[in-house]
Design a protein around this nucleic acid. Sequence first.
RNA 1: GCGGCGGUAGUCUAGCCUGGAUUAGGACGCUGGCCUGCCACGCCAGAGGUCCCGGGUUCAAAUCCCGGCCGCCGCACCA
Length: 579
Amino acid sequence: MADSNLYDKIIELAKRRGFFWPSYEIYGGLSGFYDIGPFGLNLKRKIIEAWRQMFIKNHQGLVVEVETPLVGPSIVYEASGHVENFTDPIIRCKECGRIYRADHLVEEKLGINAEGLSILELESIIKSKGLRCPVCNGELEDVKSFNLLFKTQIGPYEGNDGFIRPELAQGIFVAFKRIFESLRGKLPLGIAQVGKVGRNEISPRQGMIRLRDFTIMEMEFFFDSEKCSCNFADKHYGEKINILPYELKSKDMGFVTTTLGEAIKKGYIINKCMAYWMFIGKLFLQGIGVPEDNMYFEEKGEKERAHYSKQTFDHMVKTSRWGWVEVAGYSYRSDYDLSKHETYSRASLKVFEPFEKPQVVKKKRVIVDKAYIGKVFRSKAKYILERIENLDVEYVISELKNKNALLVDGMKIPKEAIKIVEKEEKVSGRKFIPHVVEPSFGVDRLLYIALEYAYKEKNGRVVLSFPRAFSPLDAVVLPLIEDDEKLAEKAKHLYSYLISEGFDIMYDDTGSIGKRYARADEIGIPAAFTIDYQTLEDDTVTIRDRDTWEQVRVKMSDVPKILKKFIYNSTDIKQLGIE
RNA sequence: GCGGCGGUAGUCUAGCCUGGAUUAGGACGCUGGCCUGCCACGCCAGAGGUCCCGGGUUCAAAUCCCGGCCGCCGCACCA
């Protein structure tokens, strides 16, 4: 895997065979954008399907999938903290063009704590102190803010700004209450989404690894933080996990291999739910073809984490060109997002949990003589009543006791107009904001990684040995000889038959049979059916295994059944033959 | 964004330093023909190029110079 040319070979192959390539090529290309071609899209679709299987279908009743819009109004991203935290103040040198973080520059050069300062404040400090470029001593331009959100305008009116979502999560948080209620209010609940997001990276590199427009697969897993109910994690405590906790990272150690149970017990993973989904994520990547030794979970330090996160693990996978690459992040977002949206939207996003038995609580209440207030204060009455309502009962009691009256904005309400009553109240449950754990995968990175792990060379030929279920196509149908109408007729019949059975099939009759096998191997097609002269006699065909190049004969009528077995049960081809 | 290196048919590349006889050469792939009874077979013919884009220098630019775009590496950046 130390072959750094592997990347070049894959990029070349991906372009030539139509897996993916840089977008807008005829206009010179545009950094951070990639097109995905026919074979690449099939593969991508299968990766997404596998994720759905692992995270959603295998957890029916616990995890659901939704779809929310790509563009959101600015208030949503103000609430989520992205407008504020996704922005860096930057400043550019007029002479050499170097760009600095304006706040960092002020802190370093002037020793002023610049945290939280606005653009204008930074600007005036820099101007008044005559700060210049620390490298070339050139004059500096004005401070600008750089936000990684793609901004757009909604409708024809200026000022009605919107943003392209930088993650899928906000669409889910905003719709949480509706989804939760429509599913009859049960926790824990996972809400998943697959879709495109946009992040206006300053300078994307690394091809498919860092894009400005890409597909992610996310799940927001909502649970009651007071009783972390992820008991389904328990039976997997013996499972192996490669993990690098932050405390070990500073010691410059590599990851450690331990068990899920140990990682929780030692406090490496602070939340059981998170641990469980990390385990599922591990299985998912193994399915794509990444061996366990080539992946681990790396904890992010406090400053490296996103603004919403209490703990984050990056799911790292080894690549030939870039070493360890993050393909997924697992964040403990606590109740950060729902709380923020509650504040900004003024909608209650709390969940109600009934007690087993309603509790009876004695409670003092302030009863105001509304008729008196109305008569005396007239138009101010409504305001006064509202104010009193919001006062603490104990405060009212002590005021009445000490002053024989209650003062509201200087207005005096006599003791006689206020009564304190003690009442029994029934409390039937508690309200709380659920906590959230979020596993989030980058599909396009996985697409590249699937290719890299599938790439093999055999006898000087390239073979993409995808796990069979992940191959862009299921099988290829080949007449042995190019120009034989009888063979062609049989082959086309098999071709249509397999298509009608729901398989993704390619038909290839051009060139020598060897060349066509090679071609299919390079695309990663796991099975090849060859129609030869024996087929004309007894209706049998050969099935060839992409990885071993072994062949056995099977009955033509059995082909769909056999192909299904071959692809989904990882069956050895030798067990499929007639004898 | 800075610095270094690079950008030539679908793909990989020769040519660039030392500007002109190069009609921009080759390999693979592609198309057609012949051939072909199981692993990129052979022979023949053919199509395919804004030499990344723009400007400049020059009688003349793929070639030299400047700017831009894109890619790789390093730095910076990467909620």
